[in-house]
Write a protein that binds this DNA or RNA. Structure first.
Lengths: 136, 136
DNA sequence: AACATATATGCAACTGAGTTGCAATTAGCA
DNA sequence: TGCTAATTGCAACTCAGTTGCATATATGTT
């Protein structure tokens, strides 16, 4: 997966093992992951990066727009590769996280600008509830 | 404001000075507040409650449905008196928090149930951007 | 009013997530 | 190969929140 190098070079970040490893994990992951999961993954892969390095990496990636950041009422952040405007269904019983795509909120954002003068840069929309299989 | 007593009694919570103080602060506050602000307020008012008490109180109130809980990408929770379905405009420059009322997302929730089988219990919707006065 | 008791609180120690300063290392360019 | 800014490791720290346990107190009952 050599395109990870390109992603990093595009935003003027040096290519390191730790960074490649983290990007690889992000590409594999189907749902938003947290710093601890990343740290554990790197250890397992023998990359051994310090926790501080992981946190600094996440901050850098976030600032550069490589990843998105979310909060699911857990008292910590989760991240995933930046991409389309999509949101999450978080099952409060099994913790499963499902995606839903574009929510038609752009209309609302335009309204907010007109009525309140507030310029929306981004929004967070998460749904908490019970997934299908937990309802049985 | 003796109706704070009634609020507490309704949900089988004992009436204490700390709890009355916190409810008073909530009633005064125009925007969601965090644990530290509550702790400082109580000290100022001479109620002196421990931080642990404040956190336990917030948890209890949240469980009982007296207050709502939010996250604004700050790495901590904010709370306000439970009420109508409304959301927030958070200015990333001055930190001002404005409310917007019902967002018409109930329609979307019904769709989610039909298409995904996921039962939405609650949702979080926050807009981050720049408020009118910070745009000048 | 006094009592019993479940509830609430204070204290202190702890956890988990994330941050910071600083010295050592390394990627990328000349 | 050597230079230099960017990156990392280490260790100590902060900040938000939690927990165990002993004490205190609000409230229903006598």
């Amino acid at each position: 997966m050599e395109n990870f190098r390109i992603i990093l070079q595009k935003v003027n970040l040096k290519v390191t093992n730790a960074r490649l490893g983290v990007l690889e994990l992000f590409a594999r992951s189907q749902k938003p992951i947290d710093a601890e999961e990343i740290f554990a993954y790197l250890q397992k892969e023998g990359v051994d990066a310090d926790r501080a390095t992981v946190y600094r990496m996440l901050e850098t990636f976030y600032e550069k727009g490589i990843i998105d950041r979310f909060e699911f009422q857990e008292g910590k952040f989760r991240y995933e590769l930046a991409g389309s405007d999509h949101h999450h269904l978080i099952c409060e019983q099994c913790g499963r996280i499902e995606d839903i795509s574009d929510c038609g909120i752009n209309v609302l954002e335009r309204e907010i600008k007109e009525k309140k003068g507030f310029l929306v840069k981004r929004h967070a929309l998460e749904f908490f509830g019970v997934c299908e299989s937990c309802q049985q």
